[in-house]
Design a protein around this nucleic acid. Structure first.
Length: 937
RNA sequence: GCAGGAAUGGCGAAAUCGGUAAACGCACUCGACUUAGAAUCGAGAAACUGGGAGUUCGACCCUCCCUUCCUGUACCA
């Protein structure tokens, strides 16, 4: 009987589904273990071989943990809101829900055929109203919360109201908008309701704010920075302007420090942590106020180098800075206005990309140096960004590269405040070597001492205060899209109101067109039934809007990361319609033990979800403030593109070996026409590219050899490999083994289908080990010493490998074990049974089949992982490498229990040693028992 | 520019502690079986770890310098 992998795999996939083999219970005597994958966006293209890499790894780990006696939660779902389905809808009019449903079917079929041990009973889809009900619910919780910096946690907004009623906002230490006015308890009570709402909005963790966005009037939508090229839209080339729009934002900045600190408590890859640290961008320094000469105005700046304040010889404001028009003198007005207008036309990204050009305009206004009282010029320049810090800098040209270049360019004085440093050519920025000079009370101080002194002085004189600044900005949460979660929000007198949680979900309305409306409102503006009736608590026709009891609903939808910010908790209790999850479920599963996914989500999903978790923790909804203890980033699988070479200007394709020196143009060939020896199937190639039907092929040794190059796997490079074909030809077990065998999980590595025959023939050998001339044969013979040695060395290696996520080396060990056992002609059940359990996480189908042939009625899934017995590996002798001056020359076999002296004696007396020494006397003999002998001299 | 990571045969890679470099597999060569191909079985060749210096009895591994590549990020004040 030969190895019919297609039948075997289909059989066991059905068995697992029918028997719900992988269904996890929320309660068990076993210890829990939660293995999570980043759920996929179901794209229309389906999976290529690169996608399942992480899923295979997590599946191996999940299956291993089941063998080890854990109650394993290993769920899967779909991040099914998103742009591609919407764009398809715009083009074809097909509802994104239909597209999404079809794509999910394809994904499910492809995932199933790989034999993953997912508990599909817990599947979630972010676009399912039953699921996004809870996304909306979390949004409402955020709306009803504020961040108390004193308690360092989120609290109910009702607490804040109580505080306001008692003592106004003077004592409230909150993360809030910058422009909150000061008020007393009396003031508060005298405020109108809408005034109160307006103020509270400045404190809520999700809030409406005027955000500057890239608005494209022609397309009627907001564009992301990377959708703009040279100031016009990438799509269509329409002009884009910077415009303020009311948008929902998330006050993630309130959590900046906790997001930073939390990184120290979790086992995530260091590079990923570093990306998050940079993104959060903590910097310490001071806020300092500069008076404006002749105006009742102050310019606040944030600086990380307040120690260099005496070197400040001018100030630069962002062109958008609110004081610009106020302080500009009549003589300078024309130039300033022209500059401001020119800047407004460029996107922030454009401005940042263009770092070489120095530009700016003098406003004519002067600031007063807070310490020296000297007048210093105020300039505007687009190197200062409105969105970072205060949008203004104190320029210290001697200590900052950009200020230096600016000062040189516009001939502004560059006073030197560093002792013994020449600044005639460039700015001096080495903090370690800094000794301050020409700076009054700071003279002679080092960077550290000067920092302390100056901050103390700034605070004492009321000029400002020491401050920690974060680069992390509040996250804009509104999208002008159709295919996303609707906000559970309606507007009463312009103020947002939350729909009561008990009427959720607020289901996405039907629309005729998925584009923005002609007057520039988001796609939901096309909906005719999109108003909230506060009496019936239901969605009603827009025509009923009377602003008395029926109000318009929010037209924006939530961004892609909304649905992925809490899905890992929802899996714990996926079908609960009463709560987001029960306390029993969350307290049982607690958190994710192992999370596997791509590093590309470092500053998106992986940061936002940590923020939501911390908020949920503050609200007492979850027991852990970090949701994933350990995270692994799997590497990318790249494609191995194939090239044919066309002689320039001729219809002639020459084989790679003949290219040398010729002027050729490489052309991608589809990798499916190339065999393991890089030989091109010319006939298939001609059918595929008819323009080469009559081309002349110049061969070497009768073959056309293609060139190879590693590139990103993508359709346009014709190097995409579909797992469906691999499964058909070699089986899922081969694919799983091969993806692991390719190299370390975290590393990027190229795919090359040719190599799969190696693991495939391993599976055939494994099958043969249990068969003799086509019949299943396993004996009850006592295993030999060698059998046991092979088995136990494999147990040890595989167990260590899995624990270290070194799956590639396990596959090697399996090959070695099967090669050895075949050579030993082992048929012993005592060996062949545990061997299957070792292999089963990697190649579950063949393992199940052989396991059942061994006479087991139940799945191998819960069979106990074999115990390693060290005594089986004890050796009595060691083949000692004998080195001369560090170079190994030969080996001598000696008993392991020899002492150092015995070893030295035996080695020195050995004929090979004498021959090597040729009568010389060595200076020294190094003996490391159990390792090596090195003879020096 | 800054930060993080990497460099080992023709290719993917392996090497708990500094101790026999290249396990395992692909490709390659030869042989067996076969009408032939595929498959299978057997045998084999290959290369001293990007370059340079240092520490050491001994360095892929530790230290310093340099080169190249990948990833992230940037007028961040």
């Amino acid at each position: 009987m030969s190895y019919h992998f297609n039948e075997i795999e289909a059989k066991w996939q059905k068995y697992w589904a029918d028997n719900q083999t992988f269904k996890a219970e929320n309660d068990s005597g076993k210890p829990k273990y939660y293995v999570l994958d980043m759920f996929p966006y179901p794209s229309g293209a389906g999976l290529h071989v690169g996608h399942p890499l992480g899923y295979i790894a997590s599946d191996i780990y999940a299956r291993y943990k089941r063998h080890k006696g854990f109650n394993v939660l290993h769920p899967q779902g779909y991040d099914s809101f998103g742009l591609p389905a919407e764009q398809y809808a715009i083009q074809t009019g097909q509802h994104p829900a239909i597209t999404t449903e079809q794509n999910i079917k394809t994904y499910r079929r492809q995932l199933d055929q790989l034999g993953f041990s997912f508990d599909w009973s817990r599947e979630v889809r972010t676009s399912d109203p039953k699921y996004y009900k809870w996304t909306q619910w979390v949004f409402i919780q955020l709306f009803n919360s504020w961040y108390n910096r004193d308690a360092d946690k989120a609290e109910a907004i009702s607490n804040l109201i109580t505080l306001f009623e008692k003592e106004g906002n003077a004592t409230v230490n909150a993360s809030a908008d910058e422009d909150v006015p000061h008020f007393t308890a009396e003031d508060w009570k005298s405020f109108s309701d809408s005034k109160k709402q307006e103020i509270l909005l400045k404190y809520r963790l999700t809030f409406l704010s005027e955000t500057e966005v890239n608005w494209c009037p022609a397309l009627g939508t907001v564009l992301a920075n990377d959708e703009i090229v040279n100031g016009v839209s990438e799509r269509g080339g329409h002009p884009v302007i910077r415009k303020k729009m009311k948008q929902w934002s998330m006050r993630i900045s309130a959590y900046a420090q906790r997001l930073l600190d939390g990184l120290e408590t979790i086992d995530w890859p260091e590079p990923l942590k570093e990306i998050q640290r940079n993104w959060i961008g903590r910097s310490e320094g001071a806020m300092v106020s500069f008076e404006v000469d002749g105006h009742d105005a102050k310019i606040d700046v944030f600086t990380t180098r307040p120690d260099t304040i005496f070197g400040a010889s001018f100030m630069t404001l962002a062109p958008e800075h609110e004081l610009v028009s106020k302080i500009t003198t009549p003589e300078q007005r024309e130039a300033v206005e022209a500059y401001v207008e020119a800047t407004a036309k460029r996107s922030e990204r454009d401005r940042m990309a263009d770092v070489k050009t120095i530009s700016g305009v003098f406003t004519g206004g002067y600031a007063l140096h807070p310490f020296s009282g000297e007048k210093i010029q105020i300039w505007i320049g687009d190197y200062v960004l409105a969105s970072y810090g205060t949008g203004a800098v104190m320029a210290v040209p001697c200590g900052d590269e950009r200020d230096y270049a600016f000062a040189k360019h516009f001939d502004i004085p560059i006073p030197n405040i560093f002792e013994g440093v020449d600044i005639s050519e460039e700015a001096f920025m080495d903090k370690e070597k800094t000794i301050i000079a020409n700076s009054d009370f700071l003279n002679g101080l080092s960077y550290k001492k000067a920092m302390k002194t100056i901050i103390y002085e700034i605070e004492k004189r009321g000029l400002g205060y020491g401050k920690v600044n974060y680069r992390l900005r509040d996250a804009v949460f509104s999208r002008q899209r159709y295919w996303g979660e609707p906000f559970p929000v309606y507007y009463e007198g312009g103020m947002p109101q939350m729909i009561d949680s008990k009427y959720l979900p607020l289901v996405l309305p039907e629309v005729e067109k998925y584009l923005p409306t002609e007057d520039g409102r988001p796609p939901l503006g096309n909906a005719e039934v999109w108003a909230w009736d506060t009496v019936s608590n239901s969605v009603v026709e827009n025509s009923k809007i009377d602003h008395e009891t029926v109000f318009p609903l929010e037209l924006n939808t939530m961004p892609g990361w909304a649905g992925s910010s809490q899905y890992f908790n929802r899996y714990m209790d996926a079908h609960n319609n009463e709560e987001i999850f029960s306390q029993e479920a969350i307290n049982y599963w607690k958190d994710v033990d192992l999370y596997i996914g791509g590093v590309e989500h470092a500053t998106g999903h992986l940061l936002y979800s940590r923020f939501w978790q911390k908020f949920m923790f503050d609200k007492g909804l979850v027991p852990k403030d970090e949701y994933a203890r350990k995270l692994i980033n799997q590497g990318m699988i790249q494609g191995t593109s194939a090239f044919v070479y066309r002689l320039n200007g001729q219809n002639k394709l020459i084989s790679k070996g003949l290219v040398n020196g010729h002027d050729v143009q490489p052309i991608h060939a589809d990798v499916s026409f190339v065999n393991a020896s890089n030989e091109l199937d010319i006939e298939s190639f001609k059918v595929w590219r008819p323009e080469f039907k009559d081309a002349e092929f110049m061969l070497e040794d009768g073959k056309y050899i293609v060139g190879r190059e590693v590139e990103k796997m993508s359709k346009s490079k014709y190097n995409v490999v579909n797992p469906d074909n691999i499964c058909k030809q070699y089986g899922a077990d081969s694919l799983r083994l091969y993806e692991m065998f390719l190299g370390p999980l975290e590393q990027s590595k190229p795919w090359n289908t040719a190599g799969i025959t190696g693991v495939h023939s391993f599976l055939k050998k494994l099958w043969k080990l249990y068969h003799e001339s086509n019949t299943f044969r396993v004996s009850d013979d006592e295993p030999t010493k060698d059998n046991l040695k092979t088995l136990h060395k494999t147990i040890k290696k595989v167990e260590e490998d899995i624990e270290n996520f070194s799956f590639n080396t396990s596959v090697s060990s399996f090959m070695i074990a099967v090669n050895e056992l075949t050579a030993q002609k082992c048929t012993s059940r005592a060996i062949l049974e545990p061997l299957l359990i070792l292999i089963s996480p990697y190649a579950p189908h063949i393992s199940e089949e052989l396991w059942s042939k061994l006479g087991h009625d139940e799945s191998i899934t819960y069979a106990r992982f074999p115990a390693f017995d060290a005594s089986q590996l004890v050796e009595s002798t060691k083949n000692y490498p004998i080195s001369f001056n560090g170079k190994m020359r030969f080996t001598i076999e000696l008993p392991l229990d020899f002492t150092k002296d015995q070893i030295e004696e035996a080695v020195m007396a050995h004929e090979k040693t004498l021959a090597q020494l040729q009568g010389r006397t060595p200076k020294k003999v190094i003996v490391v028992p159990g390792k090596i002998v090195n003879i020096v001299g």
